[in-house]
């Protein structure tokens, strides 16, 4: 293919090979990294970045890690969601129902989850830990009340933006809250930046 006057490094055949090899190499590296990443981000893996679903049985803290120089989730002592401890499978089913509900109600086209989604409403990554709930004792009740009828319980802070009523069933409300609690325990490398959680109870007690 090389025409007279064309250097080998500018020839069509050289760049065809380059295109193929570069693409194949980068794809291969991506596949290898994907294998590794998927083991790391499996729920409850040893890496501890994505917690097991039964983390909803525990108090979730959020503390500064000196070594990593940002905030990280800390799994505290037993503090079951709605006072009801679940085994791993029941917890997974509850979180799963919550995620399905969040997808089915199209929450992501107003809110962001882990920063991805739309920008019309607040990020939900640390919704469970948001200081807006006041304190740990009132949180479950306030979240339930809010989700049952968001327009009536809206605090729009002067924006006038209210959340429409998604007409969640009682089961869906509990599931969504479980999903948000689990989500808040994901290690996001300190995102969103500088987040300060609501006042925390004891995190260093019996962490069974």
């Amino acid at each position: 293919m090389a025409e007279p006057g064309t250097e080998w490094w500018a020839s069509e055949s050289f760049w065809r090979k380059c295109a193929i090899f570069v693409t194949a190499f980068m794809a291969l590296v991506l596949v290898l990294l994907t294998f590794h990443t998927l083991t790391v981000i499996a729920a409850g893996s040893e890496a501890g970045r994505v917690p097991a679903y039964s983390v909803i049985n525990h108090r979730i803290g959020y503390e500064f890690d000196d070594e990593r120089n940002h905030m990280v989730p800390v799994i505290g002592p037993v503090a079951p969601l709605f006072g009801e401890a679940l085994d791993e499978e029941a917890a997974r089913a509850l979180v799963d129902h919550g995620k399905l509900t969040v997808q089915a109600r199209n929450c992501m086209n107003c809110h962001t989850l882990l920063g991805n989604g739309a920008y019309y409403a607040p990020d939900l990554t640390k919704a469970w830990l948001d200081p807006g709930w006041g304190n740990e004792q009132a949180r479950e009740l306030l979240m339930t009340m809010f989700l049952k009828d968001p327009p009536a319980n809206a605090r729009t802070f002067g924006t006038g933006r209210r959340m429409p009523n998604p007409h969640l069933t009682d089961d869906e409300v509990r599931a969504v809250i479980a999903y948000l609690k689990w989500m808040s325990a994901i290690d996001t490398n300190g995102f969103p930046s500088g987040f300060t959680p609501l006042p925390q109870g004891d995190l260093r007690g019996d962490a069974s």
């Binding site: 980068m26 991506l30 990443t37 790391v40 981000i41 882990l114 920063g115 996001t188 490398n189």
Partner: peptide
């Protein structure tokens, strides 16, 4: 292809 990495900063990935 590996520029994909800039979306994996904050979603729980290593």
């Amino acid at each position: 292809i590996l520029g994909l990495g800039h979306h994996y900063f904050w979603i729980g990935t290593p």
